[in-house]
Amino acid sequence: MLRIHFTGLDLARVRIAARPDALWESILSFHRLRDKQGASIYGRWRCETRTRLNGETRLLASLVPPRGYFPDFLTPPEGVLGVEPAIEALREIPAHRLNRDLSQLAGMRTRPGWVHALGDGDTGSLSRLIGALRSYHRAAIAPYWPHIRAQIEADRAARGRALLDGGADRLLNSLPQMIRWRSPVLETDYPVDRDLYLGGRGLLLLPSFFCRRTPVTFHDRDLTPTLVYPVQHGTESVPGAPVHAYTGDVCSLGKLVGHTRSVVLQTIGAGCTTGELARRVGVSAASASQHASVLRDAGLVVTLRHGNAVLHTLTPLGAALLRGGAAAVPALSETVRS
């Protein structure tokens, strides 16, 4: 079990990551690629991704074992800005930090020569790692990014609503069931027994599409306290479902989906429950639920259970539709090769 100890200042400094983290999703997806669990969510993604990989897994497996510790430096905070800013941050990590993090692997596995060289600050080995990470991300994450982002945005909307409704206490109580808030300690299922004292630094909550069963945090207690936790998955979030791009203008929205449904889509905006949607649009709860279901099936809306209600939020495609069109979103079955 992991126990995270809060002070009053820590509660005031709880925050939710602004967007998905490209490298956390990459590393955690590498775990999902090698296990056989969660087939209904990850099965098709595994099949499609494996056809695009070209040796990256052999190199990454040297640093990321099937379970347990992997080096903290693989997930720099710049990952929330995208894969390229994260990779640039990775280039700047000093050799002593690389060596320290890699030393945690020493007792767990035999390390190949290039990993030893990486710990010694060899730039060629670092470039080799960066090339593998970039290529893996291109194959396993980039084609699915709109769906990953949509599911994480839905979770952010639910957590944000909890924060607005009841402050940090309600937010911490709203987290997935394997995480339990027993003030002033946040307990969560974890592979090892561990205590983390925040000491006034607060906690960054990072929802993740590829995190599964138990949350993850940094091994190094001096890094920004971060809790990566799994989002709630629905069938509409399964990678591999087709996505269609819309390139019309906003005036055509009513013609495309019908006047009432276009109003429903606009009303959902940053998120609302079925009851709120019904009141704002002036339809019955059953009708609002039906409209939201159709929009969800079209990939425009994500629905997430929030307490006793369900919360609807726009996907990136739905938001682009309201903006009057955006760059085409690739189909998840589209092949992307390095």
Rank of each mutant, 00 (worst) to 15 (best):
T110P: 02
S103I: 08
E56I: 09
V83C: 14
V80Y: 01
T51R: 13
G79F: 09
A132W: 06
G124P: 02
R67S: 13
R161I: 00
I141K: 04
A157Q: 03
T49Y: 11
H96A: 09
N99S: 15
T49W: 02
Y144V: 06
Y69D: 04
L102I: 15
G131H: 07
R161V: 00
A140M: 08
I179D: 00
D101T: 06
A132R: 01
G166H: 09
W145V: 02
H96C: 10
A106L: 14
L74Q: 02
D165G: 03
R58A: 15
R111H: 09
F73I: 04
T57S: 13
L53H: 01
G55T: 10
S62Y: 02
P184N: 12
L105N: 08
G113L: 12
L98A: 06
G124N: 10
T75Q: 05
A61Q: 07
S183C: 14
G82M: 11
L172K: 06
A61D: 13
Q151K: 14
L164Y: 05
R128F: 06
S135D: 08
R58S: 14
V185S: 05
Q151P: 09
L133T: 03
V115G: 12
Y144R: 11
Q177P: 07
P71R: 08
D122Y: 04
D120T: 09
T110I: 07
R52S: 11
G124Y: 02
E78Q: 15
R134E: 14
A140S: 12
Q177F: 10
R180V: 12
P71F: 03
A150Y: 09
A106I: 13
G131L: 11
R97P: 07
A89K: 11
F73Q: 01
T75S: 00
I93F: 15
S62D: 12
A157H: 01
D165Q: 12
Y69F: 15
Y144F: 15
G82H: 06
G131F: 05
N54M: 07
D165F: 02
I152R: 02
A150H: 04
P65C: 08
A139V: 15
A95D: 10
R50E: 15
